[in-house]
Deep mutational scan, measured.
Amino acid sequence: VSSEIYQWVRDELKRAGISQAVFARVAFNRTQGLLSEILRKEEDPKTASQSLLVNLRAMQNFLQLPEAERDRIYQ
């Protein structure tokens, strides 16, 4: 997982004009609270716990989908 993931998520929230709650639900089936905590802490993926890595990997995989497909999912 790239250490850029945190910025990618922030950029996607702005680009798509969606809330953290929507992104958390569709990208990795978690709550806004968890996403907020992940973004606030910005732990280095190289030293992250296994559970954090699973979530970061799910977010990264979601962000690799084509933009149009992500936008459809947000609706």
Rank of each mutant, 00 (worst) to 15 (best):
V1A: 02
S2E: 06
S2Q: 10
S2P: 11
S2H: 09
S2A: 08
S3D: 15
S3Q: 09
S3G: 14
S3C: 11
E4T: 13
E4Q: 13
I5K: 04
I5N: 01
I5E: 01
I5S: 01
I5Y: 02
Y6D: 03
Y6W: 01
Y6K: 00
Y6T: 00
Q7H: 15
Q7F: 02
Q7D: 15
Q7M: 15
W8T: 15
W8E: 15
W8F: 15
W8A: 15
W8D: 15
V9P: 00
V9C: 09
V9A: 10
V9F: 03
V9W: 00
V9H: 02
V9L: 07
V9R: 00
R10F: 12
R10Y: 12
R10T: 09
R10N: 07
D11Q: 12
D11C: 07
D11A: 15
E12A: 01
E12L: 04
E12F: 04
E12H: 06
E12Q: 03
E12M: 01
E12K: 03
L13E: 01
L13G: 00
K14P: 01
R15F: 00
R15Y: 05
R15W: 01
R15C: 07
R15A: 00
R15S: 01
A16W: 00
A16Y: 02
A16Q: 00
G17K: 14
G17N: 15
G17H: 15
G17W: 04
G17V: 05
I18H: 00
I18N: 00
I18G: 01
S19N: 13
S19G: 09
S19P: 14
Q20D: 07
Q20A: 07
Q20S: 09
A21T: 14
A21I: 06
A21H: 10
A21Q: 11
V22M: 10
V22N: 07
V22Y: 08
V22F: 14
V22E: 08
V22L: 10
V22W: 04
V22S: 09
V22I: 12
V22G: 06
V22C: 12
F23P: 00
F23T: 00
F23Q: 01
F23G: 02
F23A: 00
A24Q: 14
A24G: 05
A24K: 03
A24C: 07
R25L: 09
R25K: 15
R25A: 10
R25M: 09
R25N: 14
V26G: 10
V26F: 01
V26L: 09
V26K: 04
A27G: 05
A27V: 07
F28T: 06
F28Y: 05
F28A: 06
F28S: 05
N29Y: 05
N29R: 10
N29H: 07
N29W: 03
R30M: 09
R30K: 12
T31R: 07
T31I: 00
T31W: 03
Q32T: 07
Q32A: 13
Q32W: 09
G33F: 09
G33M: 12
G33V: 08
G33N: 09
G33P: 11
G33L: 12
L34Q: 14
L34S: 14
L34T: 12
L34Y: 15
L34M: 12
L35S: 03
L35C: 04
L35Q: 05
S36M: 12
S36V: 08
S36A: 13
S36W: 06
S36P: 06
E37N: 11
E37R: 07
E37C: 05
I38E: 03
L39Y: 00
L39S: 01
L39G: 03
L39C: 04
L39N: 00
R40L: 14
R40K: 12
K41W: 06
K41E: 14
K41H: 12
K41F: 04
K41Q: 09
E42C: 09
E42W: 02
E42P: 00
E42D: 04
E42H: 10
E43Y: 04
E43N: 06
E43L: 07
E43D: 06
E43Q: 14
D44Q: 04
P45C: 04
P45L: 07
P45V: 11
P45R: 02
K46H: 13
K46R: 13
K46P: 12
T47H: 14
T47D: 08
T47A: 11
T47Q: 14
A48L: 05
A48C: 11
A48E: 01
A48G: 11
S49Q: 11
S49P: 13
S49D: 12
S49E: 11
S49R: 10
Q50T: 12
Q50K: 12
Q50C: 14
S51R: 09
S51M: 07
S51A: 14
S51P: 11
L53T: 10
L53W: 05
L53C: 06
L53S: 09
L53P: 04
V54H: 13
V54K: 12
V54I: 13
N55I: 06
N55P: 06
N55V: 11
L56R: 02
L56Q: 03
L56M: 03
L56T: 01
L56N: 04
L56P: 00
R57I: 13
R57C: 09
R57T: 12
R57N: 10
A58Y: 06
A58N: 11
A58V: 06
A58L: 11
M59G: 01
M59E: 00
M59F: 08
Q60I: 04
Q60A: 11
Q60E: 09
Q60V: 06
N61F: 05
F62E: 02
F62M: 03
F62D: 03
F62A: 01
F62C: 01
L63N: 00
L63R: 06
L63V: 06
Q64F: 10
Q64S: 12
Q64K: 14
Q64R: 13
L65R: 15
L65C: 06
L65E: 07
L65A: 05
L65H: 12
L65W: 06
P66I: 04
P66H: 06
P66Q: 06
P66T: 07
E67M: 10
A68N: 10
A68F: 11
A68Q: 12
E69V: 08
E69Q: 14
R70D: 01
R70Q: 01
R70V: 02
R70I: 00
R70L: 02
D71N: 08
D71C: 02
R72L: 09
R72P: 00
I73W: 08
I73P: 00
I73A: 14
I73Y: 06
I73M: 10
I73L: 11
I73S: 13
Y74H: 02
Y74P: 02
Y74A: 01
Y74T: 01
Y74D: 05
